[in-house]
Design a protein around this nucleic acid. Structure first.
Length: 447
RNA sequence: UCCGCGAUAGCUCAAUCGGCAGAGCAAGCGGCUGUUAACCGCAAGGUUGGAGGUUCGAGUCCUCCUCGCGGAGCCA
């Protein structure tokens, strides 16, 4: 048997005889020729079996072999500009083939399928080239997210998943049992991050978060991953500069390093190429004016071209409002200084104008919505206590959190960036369900 | 929770006014030396999501239920 190589490294073996270990992705036959598309996890390559070049048994086995059969295949590597695959341009002239397991009839055919069928077969759907590309981009995005923070003075401090209290709304918590006491799956690590900055200055947590929202849309999961940086001695203005540097780095890294995957996904990258700091900034006040002007003119918004509803000052933006505001800009836009009443209790009020808070959401272009929520945090213990009371939250559960403001409180800020929404945006996906291997959605716990 | 749409062969979908349930793909058999979701030929494949109702007659109309999809609210 020849040297075992991986498809990603095939270019280094042109003219050599090599062995690949993989699976049969696709097959077309033509008399004495069989074209096999073979996948080994690192890429895809076309293997050509010409009947006179192999034994009778090998040719018959190749002809009979169903899709997704596992196989070990040996042949000569040829460069050919026209050959399909990832990386394309190479072909394997087969000399020998061993079927490791002949697959049963594979349910997912190389044709269109419905969403429910594909989701029921998610454990198999992952093998398709499109899902392969998406999940590789996801992995690279996560690496970029962590690289930038690690290289810019942030330290990873993991925060708990089992928590005794809510950080935000209480209606969207998954409840579990902690030896007889109610416990909840974390919606965020932020409150713990705020403790950690006093030890480390700049920290981040990265992990799964859980929201039992009754949301069934293309942008929602019940379980999603989030990176949450938190920074001591940081005001809102400085926070936005960090955010735009951060997002620019992630997008530009993917453009550079996942070009093959984005091409396979047929992603038009012209929008992404523009994602370079600085981003746009618009206040909530101005955004409301912009929305109401457009609503008065009868502007409609995708996906259903419904009329844009007007908004009263003080209300939170609905999905159509976000979509409209984002569509007015050719790269991401910050909407800052939301009304305090519609935001979480811990956001710092604007001095001299307490009805708005020092918060900012980052809206991605192309209708992908809010990918970052961030704010300056309340640093005054008295104001914080009042806010906790106003939101009807139990003081005792937040005692330690209030404590942070009693021992060397400083201005500090942080944000949360959703991994799946970022993946959907960068890959140009219609639905968030493809951005994670096994999505947990309303009404979908398995596979 | 609310609004809208849908469920027919393994998969994706047709079926006119209520009148014989039909294709493509997959699987099976045969053919082909350059295919890219190949192509050509043959053969096969059905409790039309479930329960009830209207009718001479229901995939089609009505009621209820189940499941799915899209959207709203909420959010990353």
């Amino acid at each position: 048997m020849a040297e075992i190589v991986r498809i990603a490294n095939i270019a280094a073996h042109v003219g050599e005889q090599v062995t690949l270990e993989g699976w049969l992705q696709l097959k077309t036959g033509k008399g004495k020729l069989q074209f096999l598309r073979v996948r080994d996890g690192t890429g895809f390559i076309q293997a050509v079996i010409f009947k006179p070049n192999v034994s009778e048994e090998v040719f018959e086995a190749a002809k009979r072999m169903p899709l997704e059969s596992s196989l070990i295949i040996t042949g000569n590597v040829k460069a050919d500009e026209r050959a399909p695959g990832v990386p394309g341009g190479f072909e394997l002239d087969v000399t020998d083939l061993t079927v490791v397991q002949e697959s049963e009839e594979y349910p997912i055919a190389p044709k269109e399928h419905g969403v429910e069928f594909l989701m029921d077969n998610r454990h198999l759907w992952l093998r398709s080239s499109r899902q392969w590309a998406i999940l590789r981009v996801r992995a690279r995005i996560i690496r970029a997210m962590r690289d930038w923070l690690d290289d810019n003075g942030f330290i990873l401090v993991d925060t708990p998943i089992l928590t005794p209290s809510a950080a935000e709304g209480t209606t969207t918590l998954f409840k579990t049992d902690f030896h007889g006491e109610d416990a909840f799956l974390a919606q965020t690590g932020q409150l713990y991050n705020e403790a950690n900055i006093f030890a480390f200055g700049r920290v981040y947590c990265f992990g799964p978060t859980f929201r039992a929202e009754k949301s069934k849309t293309r942008r929602h999961l019940q379980e999603f991953w989030m990176v949450e940086p938190e920074i001591a001695y940081c005001k809102l203005e400085q926070l936005l500069e960090i955010e735009e540097q951060y997002v620019s780095y992630i997008v530009q890294t993917i453009l550079k390093e996942c070009a093959a995957e984005l091409k396979l996904l047929e992603r038009d990258t012209t929008h992404l190429e523009r994602v370079v700091a600085p981003f746009y900034r618009i206040s909530y006040d101005d955004a409301v004016q912009m929305i109401n002007k457009a609503a008065g003119e009868g502007v409609t918004v995708p996906p259903n071209d419904d009329p844009l509803p007007p908004i009263e000052w003080g209300g939170d933006f609905g999905s159509p409002h976000e979509t409209f505001v984002a569509s007015q800009f050719d790269k991401p836009v910050f909407v800052h200084h939301y009304p305090s009443a519609v935001k979480a209790f811990y956001m710092e009020p604007e001095p001299g104008r307490h009805e708005v808070c020092r918060s900012a959401d980052l809206l991605a272009p192309e209708g992908y919505g809010e990918i970052i929520g961030g704010s300056e945090r309340m640093s005054d213990p008295e104001l914080l206590l009042a806010a906790i009371d106003r939101h009807g939250l139990p003081r005792e559960a937040y005692q330690w959190y209030i404590d942070l403001r009693r021992y060397g409180s400083v201005p500090h800020s942080g944000f949360g960036l959703g991994v799946e929404r970022t993946v959907a945006w960068i890959c140009g996906l219609d639905h968030i369900r493809e951005t994670i291997a096994f999505p947990r959605m309303l009404g979908r716990l398995r596979p």
